[in-house]
């Protein structure tokens, strides 16, 4: 993990990071086709070339209220188990390098974050929460426990 590249973003006001290999690209979000009868954190479908991306709001998925935070007009495109997702966050920051292995801290990060995080990594811009794409996408467990 050490020295690996990270895509840094602000989610619900906190600095978070996705492992760069999970991230395909960062796109400008165009029209989003909503999907009725899906959980709130699934915002809909958007097209990236001929691919349909499922748009997720990370804040809602983790258990925050999205309206309380700003929204970046870009989204992080990440793939998990063959499906591509567009992740919406407060702001997409930069590419950073991890300078430590992910670790936990005494007292934890709080229940909501613990659900979606692999631990804390040190970067050049300070400590960052490393997110786990799989649990973020499942969303529901996080939602269930946050509720």
């Amino acid at each position: 993990m050490k020295n690996s590249l990270l895509v840094m973003a602000l989610i619900a006001g906190r600095r978070c990071a996705f492992p760069a290999p999970d991230v395909q690209s960062v796109i400008e979000i165009g029209t989003i086709t909503p999907i009725p009868r899906t959980p709130d954190f699934i915002k809909g479908l958007t097209a990236m070339r001929s691919q349909a991306l499922t748009v997720l709001d990370c804040r809602t998925a983790i258990g925050f209220t999205e309206s309380e935070f700003p929204l970046d007009h870009r989204a992080i495109v990440a793939s998990h188990q063959g499906d591509a997702y567009a992740l919406r966050v407060d702001a997409i920051e930069d590419i950073g390098t991890a300078v430590s292995e992910p670790g936990s801290i005494p007292g934890g990060f709080g229940a909501q974050w613990a659900n979606v995080s692999k631990g804390l990594v040190e970067t050049h811009v300070g400590p960052t929460l490393l997110l786990d794409l799989g649990s973020l996408i499942e969303g529901e467990t996080a939602l269930g426990e946050a509720a």
């Binding site: 999907i35 899906t38 097209a47 349909a52 499922t54 499906d83």
Partner: peptide
């Protein structure tokens, strides 16, 4: 569709129209 969307149980897939807009 992504599994989270399939869970809704009423969609069979998605497609893109000629103008590139996704449709369920």
């Amino acid at each position: 569709l992504a599994p989270a969307v399939m869970k809704a149980g009423i969609y069979a897939g998605s497609t893109l129209l000629d103008d590139g807009q996704p449709v369920l």
